[in-house]
C-alpha cells in the first residue's frame, strides 16, 4: 500500500518534471505534506530520482529538437559549484529549518508562476484574435 502511494506521488511529480515544470517543487511537498516523509529525505529522494527521469525525458525532447544546448555550460558550471556548497549546507541543517525555507521558496515561486500564467494567457488571446482577423479576411475574398 505504501509502495503504491509513493509510486503515485512519484508519478505526479514526474509528469511535471518531464515537462520541465518543476517536478521537484511538486514531488517534495507531496512526499512531506501528504505522505509524511521528513523534509531532508524528501529532498534527497527527489534529487536522486531526477537523474533517471531526466535522462528519459531528455531523449524524448532531443528527438523533437527542443533541447538547445548552445551556451548552456555557462549556466551549468556555476550551478554545479553553488549546488555543491548549498547541498553541503542542507546536509547539516535540521529538517524543520529546511521545511520552512522550502515553504518560503514555494510561495515566492508561486508568485512568479501567477505572473507567468497571466502573461501567457494574454499572449495566447492576442494570437487568437490575430488569427480570427485573418479568417475574416479570407471570407471577404
Amino acid at each position: 500500500m505504501a509502495f503504491l502511494l509513493f509510486f503515485l506521488a512519484g508519478a505526479a511529480g514526474g509528469v511535471l518534471g518531464g515537462m520541465g515544470m518543476g517536478g521537484g517543487t511538486a514531488l517534495i511537498p507531496l512526499l512531506t505534506v501528504v505522505c509524511g516523509v521528513e523534509q531532508a529525505a524528501a529532498q534527497g529522494i527527489n534529487l536522486l530520482s531526477f537523474v533517471p527521469m531526466s535522462a528519459v525525458a531528455l531523449t524524448v525532447h532531443a528527438r523533437r529538437g527542443l533541447v538547445k544546448r548552445e551556451g548552456i555550460f555557462a549556466v551549468i558550471l556555476p550551478a554545479l559549484l553553488s549546488s555543491l556548497l548549498s547541498s553541503l549546507l542542507a546536509a547539516v541543517l535540521p529538517s524543520r529549518a529546511l521545511r520552512k525555507m522550502f515553504g518560503a521558496f514555494l510561495v515566492a515561486l508561486s508568485a512568479v508562476q501567477f505572473r507567468a500564467a497571466y502573461f501567457e494567457k494574454n499572449r495566447q488571446k492576442s494570437a487568437r484574435i490575430f488569427s480570427k482577423g485573418i479568417d475574416k479576411r479570407k471570407n471577404l475574398w
Partner: peptide
C-alpha cells in the same frame, strides 16, 4: 521510499515529456 518514488517519477517523466 526512494525505490517506488523513482519508478513513479521515471514513468511520469516519460509521460510528461510526451505531453509537453
Amino acid at each position: 521510499i526512494f525505490l517506488p518514488v523513482a519508478l513513479g517519477v521515471t514513468a511520469g517523466g516519460f509521460a510528461g515529456a510526451e505531453l509537453l
